[in-house]
Every structure is written in structure tokens, then in C-alpha cells.
Design a protein around this nucleic acid. Structure first.
Lengths: 337, 337
DNA sequence: TTGTAGGCGTTATCAG
DNA sequence: CTGATAACGCCTACAA
């Protein structure tokens, strides 16, 4: 473990001088700098982060809470972390991901890292904690919410407008002539899902179509629930002619159940998904879906968080990034994409 | 930021006493302990990890290098992290994931965390660094490799036997009558892929089938390459009657290109994948594949690493966990699973 | 059983 | 421009 002192001795200067060279202070003479740099290289000196943190109080590390990794695996969310990493790097920060995986106690354990000032701030991509606890945490440490969020916590957020996105999808289904529109949602109660349900209802309302509670059903997993629930829909007396699914994996299951029942798409049944994941682009039918700019989402969250860490006054409380409806053959024949 | 001193003042003792209470030293009298504990609670004291790390040496944090998150998103690798988390928790450790994402310099930056003893050890799930650099790192800090590994580094590893798994798949294809067997591999040169290629060749050799270099082709991405390369295979004079793909996503593309050409499966074309991901179980055909016990993989890697951290003498150098061939309708009609 | 003192590796302040 | 010194929060001999 080579320290400042070792370098100082080698270069024949004091430790403070080495420190200044490390921090690229303008006060140091050119020759001294060169000599110290050489010593640093020779000894392969690496500054001790713990010591630096102890002095400075910031670690340039941000942590991101991942409540459920497996969920992301369905939605190609990985670019979100890439967005975080790239934006963080730009500001000299590192991002670490914490695999909380639906365990509240483990989430609290990980929060110890910010409490103990091992990280400078937290990005929540969803959380197992309740609003009160989160609000308290948000008041004490720099925090932001990314993608999923809870308004009651008062923690700034970055996300798409999920309600609007759902309205766009359902509006599209209405526009192409559907009046009887089902929705496959999830029993899992998170912001994006509730908001998509709201958007669905709002779109119906605006079109003057009465809302029928039987037209929303709730799955417990993705693909398999898509199949099972669609079969339930198809068994109804007054079956829907279009189904809006809150994810592409569900939509894939939905489309396959429909095809399995001998229905043609989109003529007999239109299907729409969400996320623009690989699942939506598989062979047939390519599924109409909503694309989320996940890379931006991550980048914005980091920017917002660093802004809070720096103590900026004008932190944006709620950033909404644009989404995009992608129409494909599961709703419109011969559609472009 | 409340420190030991604050607690000490409040409890009317010295800082060292508080420190001893924090570390549950047996020397402290019961009453003092109680009094100090109360003060700790009242002030909501949280020890500063940076300071502690500076003095001591272990942080009970393990980091896991993720070279490519997006790749995992194809293979439902998430359970591997769950396995790591659970096993780590059992030993009082936390796991943090580092989104390196194919950037060598960023990987080196993250390695600063172990260098600075901010984490106790490293799990590499693949790496961008070359063998020499890794060997050096492995000699200096506790490290293990998980799933992907490089033998030349001398760093202990946990993985399945990829060559054997490929032999099982290709052996199965041979057994059901195929002699002309193609393989869709990847231009990406990592251990699992090279080993699967070796297994493929070995299986042919054992069956006395001469190896034809034209029968291995290399994709750059997953699903789309599967389609494109299969079409190239189908255009050959002496086309394969079976194709072994190194991932389910590739196999899905392969199956769909075959279906698109009007081929029946498995009669006209048999297709096998790898990973037992959701992609292999989609509607039709369900694809013959290999299941990896990813949860165990992660757990074993952590166990191995902690064993190294503790300085155990009998660390297993190479742990191989079992895989399982899952035969489905893409190779055998009316197969069970 | 408890307190004192010194030091872990940095950086900021102040003096030169 | 550079060096000495103190301090960050914690732990651990050693002393009492």
C-alpha cells in the first residue's frame, strides 16, 4: 500500500506537494510536478479513497437501488444504466447498482451506504419502502427517483408520462375502430402501472366509451399471464377486439394465445404492448408498442441527483422525457416499422 | 454528521468506550453499554465507513464487474445476482454491481474501489482486461471469475462446463439422426463461446463426422444475426439439417428464418439454443436448449470469494456446476417439456 | 472496566 | 512556490 508519503520521499518533496500535484494545483512549479509525477508512476501510487472521503466528505459514487432486476430483463432496461454510467462519468462520478430484489430489509441495509457516506446519493428505480420512510430519507440524503416514482415522497423524479403513453396507445386502438378494448395489467402496484391504467380509462372517457371493469385483468407474471388472461378474455360473451398490455412480454403471450385460438391479427384481434423490447419485434406479429428513451432516463436521473448533491437551488422536481408510439402489424396491417 | 465524540459526550464517556460498544467488546460494563446504546439511538448515530475503512481493512462489501449488462438481458441472468446477494447476506456481506459496459478504462476505475479497500473483493463476470493485467490483479486482491472465465489469469472460477454442454446438445442432434449440423456462434471471443465451439467439434469427432469450417458462422448480435445467418445457411448447396445456436435469442431468430422459408420443424430443420431463457419457450416452436443454474453460479462465486478473503488455504480453484439439456419440439416432435 | 494517545492517508490552512 | 501542522472519525495499544 503505497501512500502520499512514499511518493513524497521518493520525489524528495513533502506530502502536501504530492497532494497538490494529484489535484493538479496551479501553484506547483513545472519541474516539481514532473518529478512528482514520475515518482507516482514508478511507485504506481493510487490515492486511498477512504482517506480522501474522510477529509472531503464526498466519494463521487452514486448508488442505484434495483428492486427487481428480473423485471428489467424483460424490458431491455440495461441502456438506462448505461445512460447513468455515461452521464456520471462526465461529472467524475461512478454508479454502483444494488440488487435489492424485493427485500425491504436489504434495501435498508444498502441505504446504510449513503448514511455512512460511502456514496453521495441514491437513485431509486422503484422501492420497497413506504412513502413516509422514503420522504424522511429524501429529506436527509440526496435522492432521486428514476422511471418508477412515488409522488408522496417528495423526491424528485425522471420518467416518461405513462398516463399519456397509455392514452396514445388506447387512442390509437380507438382511432382504428375498436370500441371494446381490454387491458392486461399487473397485480404489482407501482406508479407506471397505475398511471397506464389511468391513461387507458381516460382515453375511453374522451372517446365516450363507458369503462367496463371486466375489461381490465391483472397478471402476476409476464408472458404466461399474457396467455392465460387472453384466453379468459376470449372466453367472454362480449370479448374485446383489441387488448392493450402493459408490457411486450405480456403482449407476446397475448398475441400467441390469440393466434392459438385461430384469430387473425389485426383483423380479429389487435394487440399492443409497451417498452419496444426485443419481444415486440419477434417474427410475427410485430407488436405495436411504446418506446421509452431509457438511456436518457438514466442520464437525466444522474444529472438531477448530482445537481442536488451540489446543492443547486433550481433542481427540477419532475422531469418528463418523451415516449414514442410505434405502430406495427399487430394493430395495423402493412404498417411501416 | 454525528460522530463517536458526540455520542461520547452525550453518554458521559470517552470515544473509545463508544467505539467498544459499537464493536460489542466484552470489556464494557453492562450499565455503560446500556447508557451508550441509548445515546447512540437518541442521536441516531451511524458510524462513518470511510473512517473505519481507513483504520481497518474490510468493508463487508463485494463488487461484481458487469462487462455487458445488455447481454444478460437476453439470458435471464438476473437470478445469478440474486444468488450472489443471498449467499453474501448469509455471511454479512453486501454485493454491489458495477456497470462497466465494455469500457476498459471504466473497469480500471472501478477496480480502484478494491485497491482503496472500499470493497473486500471482486467477482468478474467477464472482463475487458487482458490476461496479464488480470493475473496481476488476482495476485494482489481477492478475486473470482463467475460464468465467464479466463484460465490464463489463474483466478479461481465458477461456471458450467460449456464444452460438455455443447457436446450434449450436438450429441443429441446426432443421436436423432443429423449428420450435417451447423453452428451459429458469435464474433465475441469469450470463454463460454470458444468452449461451446470446442464441444461442437468434439461431438462431431466422436461421431466420426468430419468438421466443415463452413458449418460454423459468427453473428454480431443475437436475434437479428440468427435470422441473417440462418438465411445464409439455407442458401448453401449442402445446407445443414440442424443448427446449434449459442443462445436462445439466436435460436429464436434461426427458427423464425427457417419457418419463414417454409421449412417444418423439426422434420426439415432442427434448432437448438442455449440458456433456457423465456425466448426459448415462446409459442412455437419451443426450443431445445441448455439450462444453467445461474442462481447457484452466483452463490458459489460469492462463497469462493469470501473463502479467499478469509484467507482459507483450501479454496477450490475451479468449481463446475451442472447444466441440463432440455429437449423440446424444435428438435424432437411431441417432446415433453 | 475505562480513558489517553497515536496514527491510518488525505487535504486545507498558514507560514515561510 | 513549498513545507509543516492539524484535522477528518475511528480503532487499539497502553496506561490507569
Amino acid at each position: 500500500m503505497v501512500s502520499l508519503k512514499d511518493v513524497a520521499r521518493k520525489a524528495g518533496v513533502s506530502a502536501s506537494t504530492v497532494s497538490r500535484v494529484m489535484n493538479d494545483s496551479p501553484l506547483i512549479s513545472f519541474e516539481t510536478k514532473a518529478r512528482v509525477r514520475e515518482a507516482i508512476l514508478e511507485l504506481n501510487y493510487q490515492p486511498n479513497l477512504s482517506a480522501r472521503n474522510l477529509r472531503c466528505a464526498d466519494t463521487k459514487i452514486i448508488m442505484c437501488m434495483l428492486v427487481s432486476l428480473s423485471n428489467f430483463f424483460m424490458t431491455e432496461f440495461s441502456d438506462c444504466f448505461l445512460g447513468m454510467r455515461d452521464k456520471a462519468a462526465k461529472y467524475g462520478y461512478k454508479v454502483i447498482l444494488c440488487p435489492v430484489e424485493l427485500d425491504r430489509d436489504i434495501e435498508r441495509e444498502y441505504l446504510g451506504l449513503v448514511r455512512n457516506s460511502l456514496v453521495d446519493g441514491v437513485i431509486f428505480v422503484n422501492s420497497m419502502l413506504d412513502s413516509d420512510e422514503l420522504r424522511e430519507i429524501g429529506k436527509t440524503y440526496p435522492c432521486v427517483q428514476c422511471s418508477e416514482y412515488n409522488e408522496e415522497t417528495g423526491i424528485p423524479s425522471t420518467s416518461i408520462n405513462n398516463a399519456q403513453a397509455a392514452m396514445d396507445v388506447v387512442g390509437h386502438l380507438i382511432e382504428i375502430g375498436h370500441r371494446r378494448i381490454g387491458m392486461i395489467s399487473s397485480v404489482y402496484r407501482i406508479s407506471s402501472i397505475s398511471q397506464r391504467e389511468e391513461g387507458y380509462k381516460q382515453a375511453l372517457r374522451e372517446a365516450g366509451i363507458p369503462f367496463d371493469p371486466d375489461m381490465i385483468k391483472y397478471g402476476i407474471n409476464e408472458y404466461d399471464s399474457g396467455i392465460e388472461i387472453t384466453n379468459r378474455f376470449l372466453g367472454m360473451d362480449n370479448r374485446p377486439t383489441a387488448i392493450f398490455c402493459i408490457s411486450d412480454a405480456i403482449a407476446r403471450g397475448c398475441a400467441e394465445a390469440a393466434a392459438g385460438s385461430g384469430l387473425r391479427m389485426p383483423e380479429d384481434m389487435a394487440v399492443a404492448g409497451f417498452d419496444n423490447s426485443i419481444m415486440s419485434r419477434l417474427y410475427w406479429p410485430k407488436i405495436t408498442t411504446v418506446s421509452q428513451p431509457v438511456y436518457e432516463l438514466g442520464g437525466n436521473a444522474v444529472e438531477q441527483l448530482i445537481s442536488i448533491i451540489k446543492g443547486d437551488k433550481d433542481v427540477q422536481d419532475k422531469i418528463v422525457v418523451g415516449h414514442q408510439l410505434i405502430v406495427r402489424e399487430s394493430t395495423v396491417k402493412n404498417s411501416a416499422s
